[in-house]
Amino acid sequence: MDDMDNRLIAALRHDARASLSDLAADLGVTRTTVRGRIEKLQARGDILGFSVVLREDALQDPVRGLMMIGIEGRGTERIIRQLQGMSAVRHIHSTNGRWDVIVEIGTGTLESFDRVLFDIRRLDGVVASETSLLLSTRKSS
């Protein structure tokens, strides 16, 4: 990807419904160039698709947070399977460094968020954790 592709993707992230004409004007190129670039990015698999984010999607989890988890020994796969079965767990990320797994959690209340943290900490093999509440989202892809 070159600078133009990166600028086009940034514009689409800002407004995926922008017309080819508006994108072309913003980027200082022709509509044909924008259309060709989008088609090329889709064909290469750089752009997988476009989506709609509804207000109710953002309001669904008023309490959200990230929980970093340290796991003892070789229990990571087992713990990931257990986490996948928890309805409040939105995403599970493997990582390197101090923490083995980072989990994104979403609930309706602080009390239910606290229960999820308690349940995760009780999983056999979880030896340490650190949690941060997400206060606001400044950018979402």
Rank of each mutant, 00 (worst) to 15 (best):
K139F: 13
V52E: 09
L20C: 04
D2C: 00
S140H: 13
G73P: 03
E72I: 09
R81L: 09
D15Y: 05
D3P: 00
V34Q: 03
S140T: 14
L66C: 00
R122V: 00
T33L: 07
R138K: 11
G70Y: 00
E56L: 03
M4T: 14
D2A: 00
E104Q: 15
T95P: 03
S141C: 06
T32G: 05
A25H: 10
A18C: 09
R122D: 07
R35K: 14
R35H: 13
S19F: 05
S140W: 10
L66V: 07
I120M: 04
R7V: 00
V103W: 10
A16P: 02
G108H: 08
W99E: 06
Q42R: 15
I80R: 10
L48N: 12
E130N: 15
I79E: 01
R115T: 08
G28M: 02
S94D: 01
E130K: 15
T76R: 11
G36Y: 09
R121G: 09
S51Y: 15
D2R: 03
H93T: 09
Q42V: 11
R78F: 11
I92V: 14
L83S: 09
R81Y: 08
V116H: 02
V53Y: 05
T33H: 05
L117Q: 13
T30L: 02
V53C: 10
D119W: 03
T76C: 03
R74Y: 04
S136N: 11
T32A: 12
T32I: 06
L133P: 09
D124S: 07
V103D: 06
E72S: 13
V103C: 11
T76N: 02
I102N: 05
H14Q: 15
I38M: 08
